[in-house]
Computed example of a mutant assay.
Amino acid sequence: MTKGGRQKLYNFFAYLGGEGSAIKRIVMERNLQETLTEALKRKMDAFIPVDPDKIIDFTENPGYKPDPDEVFVIEKFNVPHHIKNSIENPRRFHKLTESDYDKIKAIYWGEYTKDDKSGEKSYRIAFQIFDSRRIIGRHLGKYAIFYGHETNTFEQVDHKLLVINERLDALYENGKLYFKSFYNAKRIFGDQISEYYREATDAEVKKFGNDLFGNPNIPEDFLDSQARKFIFWIIKNNSSFEYQKIVEKGKDFGLTLTTDDNTGKLVLPKAKREFKQLLRLLNSDMYKSPITEEKFVTNSKRKLQ
């Protein structure tokens, strides 16, 4: 709130793709700015659950699928400096024009405070993904029309219109990034967030193959996108492998694994299916019920605290 009791209005920005991820200021008339500020501030206030058990550490649980009342968090996330700068100094940024619409990948808004004594700044910035479906006008063979009350007829929209939803896809607050969907967060932050859960590189795959099998040359047809993500996460969480323990645990799930007599490391499975099952085992995606002893494969799990 301002000193006079009126709510401080948010400035809105378009985050454009391409070189440098350019930023443009969305200049709007005051009534619209007031309406959006009020509506979206409510969404921001409700985005982070009050119950701390509903806040999931993404770095520990990247394969988890949050419930509607849960949210992921990445601690100590560095939002790009130019985004923070736009919140502090909005008038330094060029205005968004109609020629920019097709380049928008996100819309964002927010505020910042500065401690009078320490000079430390705190930011609260909300993000909403954007794509061509949010552009209304003569677009891909579609016509946008509206009812003209003066003429009592429908008329065509002469210019492209933008749609801003009452929703958030990510919220940056107190140095932390909160989001519900990794896919949507990745659309906004790209490689900066992909580093937390990505596909293993060729070099990482070779090292993984050598560490686990004594063979860096894993067949290419074994290495689909899912397999590479498994490998990345296994590397991230394992500094070494207990080969005999893996063999024994594999038996619980019908996996016939063997070790090489010379190296003591695992023998690379001959079939892609068995290879993928091994990756699931190493990634803790296979488990046995402690009550019924039934065996399961999961694509969503969360560590117990």
Rank of each mutant, 00 (worst) to 15 (best):
M1V: 11
G5V: 03
G5Q: 07
R6Q: 15
K8I: 12
K8T: 13
L9G: 03
Y10W: 09
G18D: 01
A22M: 08
N31D: 14
N31V: 13
L32W: 12
Q33P: 02
T35Y: 14
T35M: 14
T37Q: 00
E38W: 09
E38D: 14
A39P: 08
R42L: 09
D45N: 09
P49E: 04
V50C: 08
P52K: 07
Y64T: 00
D67L: 15
D67Q: 15
P68E: 10
D69S: 07
D69C: 01
V73F: 12
K76F: 10
P80M: 04
H82E: 06
H82F: 08
H82N: 08
I83E: 06
I83L: 09
K84C: 12
N85W: 06
E88L: 10
H94L: 15
T97D: 09
E98P: 05
D100A: 03
D100W: 01
A106R: 00
I107W: 05
E120N: 10
E120R: 12
Y123S: 02
Y123D: 03
A126R: 03
F127G: 05
Q128E: 12
F130E: 03
F130N: 02
S132L: 06
R133H: 12
I135F: 02
K142S: 12
Y143A: 14
A144P: 09
A144E: 12
A144D: 11
N152L: 14
F154Q: 07
H159C: 10
H159A: 13
E166C: 10
R167A: 15
L168T: 04
D169I: 03
A170K: 06
Y172H: 06
E173H: 12
N174M: 09
G175V: 05
K176F: 10
K176A: 14
K176H: 13
K180N: 09
S181H: 03
Y183G: 10
Y183M: 11
K186M: 10
F189D: 06
G190K: 13
G190S: 11
Y197V: 04
A200E: 02
T201E: 08
T201D: 06
K206G: 03
F208Q: 00
N210A: 09
D211K: 04
G214F: 08
N215Q: 07
N215P: 01
P216Y: 05
N217E: 06
I218L: 02
E220N: 10
D221F: 14
D221M: 09
F222M: 00
F222C: 02
S225A: 14
A227T: 03
R228V: 01
K229F: 02
I231C: 01
F232H: 01
W233Q: 07
I234W: 02
I235P: 01
N237F: 10
N237K: 12
F241M: 05
E242G: 11
E242Y: 12
E242R: 15
Y243R: 04
K251S: 09
K251G: 07
K251Y: 05
F253G: 00
L255I: 00
L257M: 02
T259D: 00
T259C: 04
T259W: 01
D260A: 04
G264N: 03
L266D: 05
L266M: 06
L266S: 04
L266I: 07
V267K: 13
P269I: 02
K270R: 13
A271Y: 11
R273F: 10
R273V: 10
L279Y: 03
L282I: 01
N283D: 14
D285I: 04
M286N: 06
K288Y: 07
T292S: 14
E293V: 06
E293Q: 13
V297I: 15
T298E: 00
T298P: 02
S300N: 05
L304A: 09
